[in-house]
Design a protein around this nucleic acid. Sequence first.
DNA 1: CGTATGATTGACATCTCTCAACCAATGTGG
DNA 2: CCACATTGGTTGAGAGATGTCAATCATACG
Lengths: 228, 228
Amino acid sequence: VGSIDDDGFDGAVHPVAGPAFRESDVPFRHGLVHAYAAGTGIYAEGDGAERFYKVLSGVARTCRYLGDGQRQVDAFYWPGDLFGFEPDGQYRLTAEAVGDCTLVAYPRLRCVIQDAAEYRCASQLLDYALRGIERAQEHALLLGRRCALSKLAGFLLQYDSHRPGHRFIELVMNRQDIADYLGVTIETVSRSFTQLEHDAVIAMPAAKRIAILDRARLQRIAEQSGGA
Amino acid sequence: VGSIDDDGFDGAVHPVAGPAFRESDVPFRHGLVHAYAAGTGIYAEGDGAERFYKVLSGVARTCRYLGDGQRQVDAFYWPGDLFGFEPDGQYRLTAEAVGDCTLVAYPRLRCVIQDAAEYRCASQLLDYALRGIERAQEHALLLGRRCALSKLAGFLLQYDSHRPGHRFIELVMNRQDIADYLGVTIETVSRSFTQLEHDAVIAMPAAKRIAILDRARLQRIAEQSGGA
DNA sequence: CGTATGATTGACATCTCTCAACCAATGTGG
DNA sequence: CCACATTGGTTGAGAGATGTCAATCATACG
């Protein structure tokens, strides 16, 4: 029996043209692979939650649009991440492709697991769900800290942890995405980047290309709660 | 076969003196009931995650203490809520009793579900986990909104939803708890309460006793993103 | 009644937002 | 190859919100 991790894609994956079926897993045999262009919507808040998704390549985001047009980004999802789990029948957030990305869509999780083959998947999904809680809690912790510099430092460390060992952090999202994720404005994000660069904590040869020069200091900045 | 909801306690529950065993569910047969006094620690960040908990009575909180002594409250847990799920072997947050409360502790969830009787529970736990994601996401959304008044309004509505229909909201936590949950200071919480009262959106006969006078307006305040 | 604790209020400093201008990189057409 | 526009990012000045520190008030408890 296969598993949700065994989707035939390993590591870096090229986007595929059309949808493709997977026949291995029992509740996941209808996994459909789709490519999304940068900025494309995957699903919208309020839509019926028919599917959940796994990222194969690229980065996706979930967010909520507030009444006055403001946007709050909830999370960025990396290759291997699952999103779109919903306890009830509809999505509570909007999902969009940050850059070009490829996803595999699985049919909605049934609340009552019925046959034996599904149990293995339930166990696996449970693990993913716990990771989702962890992710959301860390995000809340990040947002609760007051100082913008601290938020950005936390974001960079979090980002770097997805691809450790690389010389440069290549930001796939723009300043607006980061701002909405951190709950600040793009100007504040920009100023914080500039300050980190000025203090020689990071280097920024290009706006979306960051190198961490002093990781220990970055971590200290991330851990401090406010500007005081 | 029983379920995790079938813990023999229904609705309001009186704290019991000592631990008590439950023999019904297979992975949950070792559910231990314990009473915690107000302010007592339930587990600490970094402890081995041996158990997860269900609230029977009272309210518990999970939080993280930052390096400089600052505290960020992650969530409040109400009767019926589960907390303490961890994907890895140790707690990432500290859990404490807000007021006097009674909990039932279940042995740690195994990652690999082995016997058939556990499957039913896995399905149930998955549902709880999804609720946990929902809760954490809503909290992050609350924190991302900038204006303190909006955060407090959101908190009051969230609080009220736990006991709808009551004339008064009886706050079980103090101002510091609320402040740490919303990521602001107690002074700002206090000022926001005062403003809501001044604007006749709420009434506050006592510091911990709130009545919502104009729910529609409170919702509007909660939805606006900033002070602008 | 005095004390202790929690909550509120006030004054001022600081941070972030807002609005505006400017800069850099990119692409287009002449 | 060079204007030119467009987009995304940065910088600046002033306004507004929240933090900080301190004093005051309210309540509960001896």
